[in-house]
Simulated assay, not measured.
Amino acid sequence: MSERAARLELQREQRNLAIDQQREEAGGLDNIHLQAGSGGWLRYRYRHIVVNEAQDLRPAHWKMLRAMTAHSRNDLFLVGDTHQRVYKNQVTLGSLGINIRGRASKLSLSYRTTRQILRSALDVLSQEKYDDLDGNEETLAGYRSVLSGREPDLHGCADWEAERETIAMLIDSWDDLPHEQIAICVPTNQMASETATTLAEHGIRAVEIGPDGPRGDDGVHIGTMFRFKRSRVPAHDRDRRQRRADPQGRREPGRTTDPVRHRRKVQQARSLLFVATTRARDSLDIFWHGTPSPFLAPRVTAGR
């Protein structure tokens, strides 16, 4: 053995002895930052972790979760649907130390909304391909509902003011429906505020949904699509909901210059509208002004 090789071997033995000594002093725990000298000891804080809305987590979130529990049979329980991904977070769990292949189960029966609304929502997704959080493709084939109701109604308007007026008049015509069971979903916070103002002019109380949920219970709930994704609305599973269509998708920059990014932006826009429509349980009304979103093309064409 050369002198250099002997010196390297000695250094390796000394380092292993140091690691064994530190591990013994820490009660058998591994030092995950030994080279950095930070003294950070790996302590698994939890035995089991349940993760909801898994499709919206970033790689950093997954790395943190993976470090919080030891690898075991029931270490992580994940619930997610990439068709409802509304943020730009696309990951492959296998590359982050989370193995789901052969361990996943698909839920195909919906108790949230009617089959008519579900069919309309699936049309929004069209033939877009979505991942399964592990690099493979996912599909909603076989997805169905146990509930039945009327077909979603479509309302095309000349402009935004006319659209708000149409929404207010429709709500005013629902004499037998408590306002607490009605919700309006719009693309932006400004549109939510303007809609609330129009409803107030018609004597209809509105409750806007903020970062912490609805600012009250007595009235029609109004919020953005992102708010409906993240917020819990009172009587959520019993509400009859009325929606406005997302106008995203009319412009398509980047289709040729950056097709991968363009495709993901289209998927995100479709997913946002899919989320909004599937939050309605009993009935759905879709509004737009001017040219409707191309994501609504199948329904708009069928309704003509």
Rank of each mutant, 00 (worst) to 15 (best):
R263D: 12
A206H: 10
V50P: 09
G27M: 03
Q21S: 15
E163F: 02
S148D: 15
N74R: 13
I167D: 07
H61Q: 10
S148G: 13
P234V: 00
H33M: 11
N99C: 11
F77Q: 15
A18H: 03
V51A: 05
Q190G: 07
V220H: 06
D237H: 09
G142W: 06
S38I: 13
V233F: 03
I117N: 12
V50K: 06
P214T: 01
R23K: 14
V233Y: 00
I286G: 01
N99Q: 13
K129A: 00
C185S: 08
E137P: 08
R263C: 07
F274E: 00
A269W: 07
W288S: 02
W41Y: 00
V220K: 08
E194F: 06
P298C: 08
L118S: 09
K63Y: 04
S108Q: 13
T92F: 08
A168S: 06
R270F: 01
L29H: 15
L57R: 11
S193H: 11
Y111D: 13
W160L: 14
R215D: 12
P187K: 12
R85I: 05
I32V: 06
Q55T: 11
T188F: 02
D212F: 09
I209M: 01
D239W: 07
E9G: 13
D134P: 01
D123A: 14
V50D: 09
I204Y: 00
L76I: 02
L125F: 04
R238L: 14
G223F: 02
A196D: 03
T139P: 12
D20A: 14
D285Q: 08
G40K: 12
F295C: 07
A36S: 08
E137R: 11
A192Q: 01
D217H: 14
E13P: 03
L170H: 09
A104D: 15
P187Y: 04
N99H: 13
T92E: 12
G156C: 02
R150P: 15
I100G: 00
E25G: 07
L118F: 01
R270N: 06
D282Q: 12
D237V: 08
V91L: 06
Q248V: 11
I117S: 09
A183D: 07
M1L: 12
W62Q: 04
H221T: 14
T113W: 01
D56L: 10
M68N: 09
N99A: 15
L17W: 10
D176V: 13
E137M: 08
F77G: 05
T195R: 00
D132R: 09
T198Y: 03
V51C: 08
I167A: 05
K88N: 15
Y87W: 12
A276S: 02
L170R: 11
M68W: 05
E25T: 07
Q11A: 04
R270A: 08
L8Q: 09
I167T: 03
D172T: 12
P59Y: 06
K63V: 11
G216Y: 03
K106V: 14
V220R: 06
